[in-house]
Each structure stands twice: as structure tokens, then as C-alpha cells.
């Protein structure tokens, strides 16, 4: 249990708002909160737990910026109440990798420049992780279809597709995670020079 709070971080408590207790397991750690029942999972993450990697875009389930994994499955955290997830195992972008050890998808997004402004990126990566967990998409067209719940206003779709395909291909080729790198499983796609940091 990390901490208990009744108001969004850095804000005064909301007067008279009835709260109820909820315990959320996020990235392996249990957090006990007392929150109003209308708090979405997205707001609980961002406003109460300071996990601001998950982004609020449209707040209506249309853009996918708020995508997180619940029991390994991707959902829109803006269209779900925190109190509905008492027994769930939630993974956010903060739980997929560390600064020292990026997840294969995080590394692939960097290697392939799969973003411009970066606002949709945490949702894109969580959604792509969900897609990989599902094991349904194999081809580029299938990845495009099953990533259709994530919008990118910058239009970085072609590089996002390349990044996701690379991780899928590396996985299918059975490469151990330590040997995953840009173009390892697809020599024809390898960058001409080492990716810039």
C-alpha cells in the first residue's frame, strides 16, 4: 500500500463529495484510495496517483490516448470508473519498462521515430502491447485495423506501424528480448545508419 489520499494531489479536498474506498493494483503496487465514485480510472491515475504518463485526449473513448492494460487487455481508462477495478491488475506506460530498460515497443518507437509531439505515444504503446498480447494481428493491414482505436494528430502512423511490426516480427522470429533491435528480424528494413539518440 503506497499512500492514502482524499483529494487530487496538490488540490484542496472537494467539499461534501461522498467518497468510497477502492484498492487499485497498478504496475504491481497496491494503492488504497478514498475517491468519489464518478472518478474515472484515468483521473484516478493522473490526479490521485501522479501517474501522468497516461494521457487525457478526448475523454470520450474516441482517441485512445488514455489506453492502459487491465489484466493484460487494453481499455480506454477514460470510459471506466476507478471503483469498477477493485480486483484488476492495471498496467500503465510507467509499468511497461524503465528508463534503463525500455520495453521492446518503447525501444522500437524510439528507433523508428514513431511519434512527433508524443502526446498519443503512451496510449499507442499500451495499445500495441495489448495487440501483441491478443496474438491476432500478423500482417501490416491487420495491425492497422487493430490499432484503429488510437489516433495520432501528427500523423505518425507509418512509423508507428513499422515499430509495431518490428516487435511482432522479432517475437515471431523467436529472438530473445536482449537481442531485439531495429531491423534485427527484417534486414531489408534496417536503417542505413545507426538510429540517432
Amino acid at each position: 500500500m503506497s499512500h492514502v489520499t482524499q483529494a487530487p494531489l496538490g488540490r484542496p479536498p472537494v467539499a461534501l463529495a461522498p467518497t468510497q474506498p477502492v484498492a487499485l493494483r497498478i504496475n504491481g503496487a497496491l494503492h488504497s484510495l478514498n475517491i468519489a465514485p464518478w472518478t474515472t480510472l484515468l483521473d484516478a491515475l493522473r490526479e490521485y496517483l501522479d501517474l501522468t504518463g497516461t494521457k487525457k485526449g478526448c475523454d470520450h473513448g474516441q482517441c485512445g490516448a488514455c489506453t492502459v492494460l487491465v489484466d493484460g487487455k487494453r481499455i480506454n481508462s477514460c470510459l471506466s470508473l476507478a471503483v469498477m477495478h477493485e480486483d484488476s491488475d492495471i498496467t500503465t506506460i510507467e509499468g511497461l519498462g524503465t528508463a534503463e530498460q525500455l520495453s521492446p515497443l518503447q525501444q522500437a518507437f524510439i528507433d523508428h521515430d514513431a511519434f512527433q509531439c508524443g502526446y498519443c505515444t503512451p496510449g499507442q504503446i499500451c495499445s500495441a502491447q495489448g495487440l501483441i498480447n491478443e496474438g491476432r494481428a500478423k500482417t501490416e493491414d491487420e495491425v492497422r485495423e487493430l490499432m484503429s482505436g488510437n489516433l495520432c494528430r501528427c500523423g505518425a502512423y507509418s512509423n508507428i506501424l513499422t515499430a509495431v511490426m518490428e516487435v511482432l516480427d522479432n517475437q515471431q522470429a523467436g529472438l530473445p528480448a536482449g537481442e531485439w533491435s531495429a531491423g534485427a528480424a527484417r534486414p531489408h528494413d534496417a536503417p542505413a545508419e545507426a538510429p540517432k539518440q
Partner: peptide
């Protein structure tokens, strides 16, 4: 219908 995220919920 919908998107993968919505169909999961």
C-alpha cells in the same frame, strides 16, 4: 464495430 479497446470493455 468500435475499437479493440472498446470491445475489451
Amino acid at each position: 464495430g468500435a475499437s479493440p479497446q472498446l470491445r475489451n470493455m
